[in-house]
Design a protein around this nucleic acid. Sequence first.
DNA 1: ACTGTTTATAACCTCTCGGTTCAATAACCA
DNA 2: TGGTTATTGAACCGAGAGGTTATAAACAGT
Lengths: 118, 118
Amino acid sequence: MRTDLDATFAALADPTRRAILARLAAGEATVTELAAPFAMSQPAISKHLRVLERAGLISRGRVAQRRPCRLQAGPLREATAWLAEYRDHWAERYQRLDELLDELRAADDPGPRGGEAP
Amino acid sequence: MRTDLDATFAALADPTRRAILARLAAGEATVTELAAPFAMSQPAISKHLRVLERAGLISRGRVAQRRPCRLQAGPLREATAWLAEYRDHWAERYQRLDELLDELRAADDPGPRGGEAP
DNA sequence: ACTGTTTATAACCTCTCGGTTCAATAACCA
DNA sequence: TGGTTATTGAACCGAGAGGTTATAAACAGT
């Protein structure tokens, strides 16, 4: 089930790519501009950009030889929506209940810890 | 720079793991309960759970032989915070500006393509 | 037409990921 | 004690990620 979220989260999982997005938040930039601050080759950056593009997180124009990159908001909305679902629901509700139940259960059934094993 | 966000987003990038989290949102569950709906071996699920655990997205108890899993909210907050930064800022602001500039630029410089686009 | 700049491709390497199977551990049950 | 259940661990495999270097392609300027 290759959904969009797969590509989005996978793209965001790399620190270089998150840094590129951060850089792009200040406005569009060319490949060499984006590559400059990183200690890696330009083709490596091109690969990262391709990942970001296929995830829909950036789009690219064409100005002469340059391929300026700019951010794209769509996928982030999906991702945030997915996360918000959880952060709001169980973070507040089930979480505490489960922990309480767990404490009760632990008190009820002491278990085999301690020095009683031979 | 192995930050928390790396592990969090990487963990969320897999559909099986997201499904596991979705399942866990309804309350804690054991490994076999979690493995049941999936068409893969139970050790595979154990691996996924280990990924989720190391990302801090779940925590595990011990009840007899069972290792019940429950959700953990912390990392999701970080992730949402990171996403919100972008979704709010450039999604609304720079995005439209850049697109307008791009249209202007395209109209100004028709470029070397054969048939003029309608 | 040549030269330099910008970007993408190709080929390669290594490491991790997601999956498998088979075996080992841990705890309950009789 | 032995047997069953729940879970992890180890060894392995194929595919893909992330990096490299070297090369090609597109365009600008002279």
